[in-house]
């Protein structure tokens, strides 16, 4: 009956079947596609690089106070951007890695935000981890890792409104002209306070809400290289069989070495703060502020 020469009744029936099929198809399509969201990326060969802030080997948690120069200091903020991660393998080769995009990182840049207010201390307000895809290399072959504390110039001075997270975070944004604060440490005692806001300076643009057409004179982009030793490497299995977690320790006391904690000795890259900024940036690169956390 479907081979031709259909009767009028058969045509009506066929029409009815086709209509039903069409309706069912539409229903299934909208039922599936309707308002669903993309599935999360899973089952990739990724690594969690987790930062742990410590002071004299003790982890600094929300509300913790540290004793410095005979005063107790609250750490109100400890945040920084991590970009341009490479893993180094035997033979001196550096392999570039790409992040797994999420609310805290683009493909190249991650915001690490370690200290939140205790009353706000939920996972939404802190992030300690860079999640990146491992390139075509066995994890055990990696002997060092490098990353930069900065936001790439191409993204650093864009309108933050139209940037993907975390580059739309107002707490870490100076202005179109200066771009982001690459690192922000805010500390406070009962009598005084101390701030370290790292970012590009010497940026020229016609107004503070206009981006500079050329790179800033003092970009303040610092690269950190951390050697890995097999014995010290922490590899923890995760629920995902391909995933691995590596812990990176941040030594606050090494960052603050030879620094006087007073508001006058803060560093936000104003001319009057040149000396204190030089000490801090030197510590950042040369004083082993970042190391693998020992087991």
């Amino acid at each position: 009956m479907f081979l031709g020469g259909n009767t009028a009744k058969e045509k009506v029936i066929n029409k009815g079947v086709l209509s039903r099929l069409l309706l069912i198809s539409i229903a299934i399509f909208f039922g599936i596609v309707g308002c669903s969201q993309n599935a999360n990326v899973t089952n990739d060969n990724w690594v969690d690089l987790t930062f742990v802030l410590t002071y004299k080997q003790k982890q600094v948690l929300c509300g913790a106070e540290v004793d410095l120069a005979a005063k107790k200091w609250r750490i109100n903020k400890f945040a920084f951007f991590v970009s341009n991660i490479h893993v180094g393998v035997d033979g001196g080769r550096w392999l570039h890695v790409e992040n797994v995009p999420n609310d805290w990182q683009t493909e190249q840049t991650t915001l690490i935000n370690l200290v939140a207010r205790c009353s706000d201390s939920n996972d939404k307000n802190t992030n300690a981890t860079v999640k990146f895809y491992l390139p075509n290399v066995v994890l055990d072959d990696i002997v060092k890792l490098k990353f930069s504390l900065f936001v790439p110039f191409e993204q650093n001075h864009l309108n933050p409104l139209i940037q993907a997270p975390p580059l739309n975070n107002a707490e870490m944004f100076w202005s179109w002209r200066q771009g982001h604060k690459f690192m922000r440490v805010d500390m406070q005692s009962e009598e005084d306070d101390w701030l370290f806001h790292l970012g590009s300076v010497g940026c020229e643009s016609v107004a503070v809400v206009r981006p500079p057409p050329a790179p800033c004179k003092q970009a303040n982009q610092f690269e950190i290289i951390v050697p890995l030793h097999i014995d010290n490497r922490r590899l923890e299995g995760n629920n995902n069989e391909y995933g691995r977690r590596l812990n990176m320790q941040i030594h606050l006391e090494r960052l603050l070495d030879n620094t006087e904690l007073t508001s006058e000795q803060s560093c936000m890259f104003m001319q009057s703060q040149k000396a204190s900024c030089e000490v801090l940036t030197s510590n950042l690169v040369n004083n082993r502020v970042f190391t693998w956390q020992p087991n």
Binding site: A164, N169, F173
Partner: peptide, 24 residues
């Protein structure tokens, strides 16, 4: 001024469709 009155709304207490972080 901009430290506390920052962002497109001139307040750190600001959130929108593709920003999950609640600022101080």
């Amino acid at each position: 001024c901009f430290h506390c009155h920052g962002g497109f709304n001139f307040t750190q207490s600001s959130k929108h469709a593709f920003q999950t972080l609640t600022l101080k």
